[in-house]
Design a protein around this nucleic acid. Structure first.
Lengths: 157, 157
DNA sequence: GCACGCATACTCGGATACTGATTGTCCGAGTTGTCATGG
DNA sequence: CCATGACAACTCGGACAATCAGTATCCGAGTATGCGTGC
């Protein structure tokens, strides 16, 4: 799995703590964790294209959340970075085997494919059940100073 | 995810249908689905090293299941090929951020890491709940001729 | 003093190199079956 | 005819390349800001 997923999740979380209407540049988000700015920018672009972030060019520009944190699931973020296709992709090798038919969709018929897809569905379901807002709330309970600290660092550094 | 996982699962399943005590060479298992024999051999080696298959060298040699199909879960096979580490590996970027401590294990403390690990745990649990024997039984119900057909092809080709 | 136009600096966005893992291939170590040979 | 030993063929096992996705970087398009100029 791409390392960009971790960066994207942390960045989305940090963006929940900025003032409404404000934006943060990719450079500042990268400096926060000492990440390569240009590459993080690439990931943020993917999030923007997926409708999770909104981007503004020029001075005073940057990124901000495009929706409420309650409406952004972890699955949304992961899918935006990793793409929509499943980790286990069935190559339908049964088609090459004895008795293999060209007119059968083995992605649906193959029991191994079904089992692997079922497991991945459970994974997706788990991720879809948690939102950025959930994380935000949990962090604020565990570390009450984080919102103010994050806002401060993103504004000044 | 490695394509070898699909090959390994199908090969394990095919090995459930050979006569007890018999073995099948990597070449024959590869010819079954028209796969690159040497590369499949590499995957079978990994399964042997994990204790899922037993290998024999020399003439009349080959691979066979090392345990009963009931005792081989899908997770066992996936782990043998893919390795033990999680797909989402937390790089603990919080350590680089403001307030990051060197003596904290952020793999355990970071809430994002927890959420991602939780989802992966659900995935693992699903895979651990299905065995090769389950697949074997399901295939034999859906396609009753498969055992005899598979045994025949592996013996003759 | 005020409005307008221009230059400037800053940001995202996509096109372009680089690296490591996955994929694929090859040859050697080891073992078993076979055959020739001798008793 | 039977036992023995060497040979040969076949298999796994690990070491060695090729390819591709992921990683990282750079430069250009677009925009809001600030300044200078003219009215």
């Amino acid at each position: 799995m791409n390392a960009g997923v971790e960066w994207a999740l942390h960045s989305c979380l940090n963006l929940t703590w900025i003032e409404p209407g404000e934006t943060v540049t990719a450079t500042k988000l990268a400096a926060f964790y000492d990440l390569p700015a240009a590459y993080l920018n690439k990931q943020l672009q993917a999030l923007a294209k997926a409708g999770i972030l909104a981007s503004t060019s020029g001075p005073r520009g940057g990124f901000r959340l495009a929706r409420r944190p309650e409406d952004i699931t972890l699955l949304d973020v992961v899918t935006a970075i990793e793409g929509r296709e499943e980790a286990f992709r069935c190559n339908e090798i049964l088609r090459q085997g004895p008795g293999g038919r060209a007119d059968v969709d083995y992605r649906a018929a193959c029991l191994i494919s079904q089992a692997m897809s079922g497991a991945e569905l459970a994974w997706r379901k788990e991720l879809a059940g948690r939102t950025i807002a959930d994380l935000k709330a949990a962090v604020e309970v565990a570390f009450p100073s984080t919102p103010e600290s994050t806002r401060h660092h993103l504004a000044n550094v």
